[in-house]
Simulated assay, not measured.
Amino acid sequence: MSQQLTFDLPTREALGRDAFFVAPSNRLAVATLENAAMWPSGKLALIGPKGSGKTHLAHVWANENNAAIIAATQLATLDVPTIAARRNVVVEDADTLPALADAPAAQEALFHLHNLTLAEGGRLLITATQAPNHWALTLPDLASRMEGTAVARIEEPDDALLSAMLVKHFEDHQIAIPHTLVPYLIKRIERSAAAVRDIVDALDAASLRARKPVSQKLAAQVLDKSGI
């Protein structure tokens, strides 16, 4: 009997529109992003749990609107006027700003980026895990502007979305799986995007250690040990 070989292949995350699965838990957020002309004051905060698809959706929007994508960790050294001149800007993980070593400079940069982008008639999309009033910003002018930002929320996934996320993560890891594995995992993992990511990462690692393909038997062993 031939054996399926296992390889330590690089993860290639698919961030295109076709790879994003629209479900009840994110449908309103998707519709809001697609109607950027109606964002109050030209800005929107995209809120959702870690791993829920915020980055994916933000990249889709950025690609369709020729927007610059800036991580919160880049803000302190950002050439704000140049980025604002792009007119459309995405800032990711804005709720991490207070914890950054250069938080004052980063918050000052976001304040100016916010003002210049909107003054240019552009659109500002900001991602975070919590709504702006929970970001604990220390720059009062920035806090007031962020708290006045409309929010589009991605909720925890339902069965259909969990299934699609599992398939996507396995594809990102270039892992072939039996057709019975996704339904098996759906019934046993925590109902969260983070749990989807964790189980795929754990199965990938276990498969490489055992030099065996991912299977339902391997999944049972991993779940038993990890408690995911």
Score class of each variant (00 low, 15 high):
171 E>A: 15
129 T>G: 15
208 L>K: 11
212 K>Q: 15
191 R>V: 08
139 L>H: 04
139 L>F: 01
194 A>D: 09
196 V>S: 03
133 N>F: 08
191 R>M: 05
186 I>R: 14
198 D>S: 13
176 A>V: 11
139 L>C: 02
207 S>C: 10
133 N>D: 13
132 P>G: 13
182 V>T: 10
162 L>I: 10
132 P>Q: 13
131 A>Q: 12
180 T>G: 12
163 S>E: 11
125 L>A: 09
199 I>P: 05
178 P>D: 09
163 S>G: 12
155 E>R: 12
156 E>I: 02
148 G>E: 03
126 I>L: 15
159 D>K: 08
166 L>Q: 03
133 N>C: 10
125 L>E: 06
127 T>M: 10
185 L>H: 03
158 D>Y: 03
127 T>V: 11
142 L>S: 08
145 R>F: 11
201 D>F: 06
180 T>L: 08
125 L>Q: 07
176 A>I: 06
184 Y>R: 11
171 E>P: 02
163 S>P: 00
191 R>H: 11
162 L>M: 13
200 V>D: 08
163 S>R: 11
197 R>W: 00
130 Q>D: 13
164 A>G: 05
150 A>F: 07
178 P>H: 09
183 P>A: 04
206 A>R: 13
169 H>S: 13
196 V>Y: 00
189 I>V: 12
152 A>M: 10
195 A>P: 05
146 M>Y: 01
197 R>V: 09
153 R>C: 04
